[in-house]
Amino acid sequence: MGLRDVMEAKLAAAFSPEALAVLDESHHHAGHRPNGPGHAPVTGDGETHFRVRIVAPAFSGMSRLERHRAINAALKEELAGGVHALAIEASAPGEAATR
């Protein structure tokens, strides 16, 4: 199971989302400071830059910061490991899409 699938499974288990997508956007970042300080090796081959789109009732009543913190906590191991960037679009059902 790839990192993307692992992250999707963890988010699904943590938030019972109505909608969930984990996108691997690593190819957009090929050659982005490869192996520089503060970076996992970035080859553009995948598994470094991700975007999470998630709609879950659990987020209603939570601030943006709280939503991101909850998602970061669910993916703690991945963020400590090879995941270099995680863009998050989190909303509760019925909220207007943020973009």
Binding site: H68, N72, K76, L79, A80, T98, R99
Partner: peptide
């Protein structure tokens, strides 16, 4: 900040968020 990614914005000593949050708040 107990926040795993960079960048991180602070205003008057308070953590505001990272890129996504700053962008959404700006918009």
């Amino acid at each position: 900040s107990q926040w795993p990614t960079l960048p991180q914005l602070f205003v008057k000593g308070e953590f505001v968020g990272g890129c996504d949050i700053v962008k959404e708040m700006f918009q």
